[in-house]
Amino acid sequence: MSNTPEHPATRAPVLVTMADDIPGHEVEAVIGIARGSVVRARFFGRDFVAGLRNLVGGEVSEYTKLMAEAREQALGRLVSHAEEMGADAVVTFRFSTAAVMEGTAEVLAYGTAVKLK
C-alpha cells in the first residue's frame, strides 16, 4: 500500500448525508467545514412570466427551477471543496439561503468533512 495520494479519478465519491454518521462506516477524523455557495439573480424573462403567474395564483415554477438549479450547484461546490480537503464524506449537511440584494439570493451548502476508517 502506497502513501501517495490517490488520483482524483480513482477516488470513491464523497458521501453526503444530513445524518450525524454514516451507517456501516466509522469516522476516523474530522477535517473541518466543507462549503459551497452560489448567488443567483432573477432576470426579466422569468420575472415577466412569474408576474403573470402571480396574478392567477399557484406555483411560480420559474423560481422553483431557479432555486433547484442553485441548490444543485451549491451541493456540487460543497462536494468539490470536500474532495480538495481530502474528505471521504460530509456529515450534518445543510442548506441555507439568504437574500444578498434585491432580486438575488445566496444558496449555501455546508457540512462537516470527515475521513472514514
Score class of each variant (00 low, 15 high):
Asn3Glu: 10
Thr4Tyr: 08
Thr4Met: 10
Pro5Arg: 02
Glu6Gly: 03
His7Pro: 03
Ala9Ile: 14
Ala9His: 10
Thr10Ser: 11
Arg11Pro: 07
Ala12Pro: 00
Val14Glu: 03
Val14His: 05
Leu15Thr: 11
Leu15Ala: 14
Thr17Ser: 01
Met18Asn: 11
Met18Leu: 05
Asp20Gly: 15
Asp21Arg: 14
Gly24Cys: 07
Val27Thr: 14
Val27His: 04
Ala29Ser: 15
Val30Thr: 11
Ile31Gly: 00
Ile33Pro: 00
Ala34Met: 08
Ser37Pro: 02
Val38Ala: 06
Val38Trp: 06
Arg40His: 08
Ala41Ser: 15
Phe44Met: 01
Phe44Pro: 00
Gly45His: 09
Arg46Asp: 15
Asp47Ser: 07
Phe48Met: 14
Phe48Gln: 04
Gly51Thr: 06
Gly51Ala: 11
Leu52Glu: 10
Leu55His: 02
Val56Asp: 00
Gly57Asn: 08
Gly57Pro: 09
Glu59Cys: 03
Glu59Arg: 13
Val60Gln: 08
Ser61Ile: 03
Ser61Asn: 05
Thr64Lys: 13
Thr64Pro: 02
Lys65Tyr: 09
Leu66Asp: 04
Met67Arg: 10
Ala68Thr: 12
Leu75Cys: 03
Leu75Lys: 13
Gly76Pro: 08
Ser80Asp: 14
His81Gly: 06
Glu84Val: 13
Gly86Lys: 13
Ala87Met: 06
Ala87Tyr: 06
Val90Arg: 04
Thr92Asn: 13
Phe93Met: 06
Arg94Tyr: 00
Arg94Glu: 07
Ser96Asp: 13
Thr97His: 08
Ala98Pro: 00
Val100Leu: 11
Met101Thr: 14
Glu102Ala: 14
Ala105Ile: 14
Ala105Gly: 05
Ala105His: 12
Glu106Ala: 11
Val107Lys: 05
Val107Tyr: 07
Val107Ser: 03
Ala109Cys: 03
Tyr110Asp: 01
Thr112Asn: 03
Val114Gly: 01
Val114Phe: 00
Val114Arg: 03
Lys115Ile: 08
Lys115Ala: 11
Leu116Ile: 11
Leu116Lys: 07
Lys117Cys: 01
Lys117Met: 01
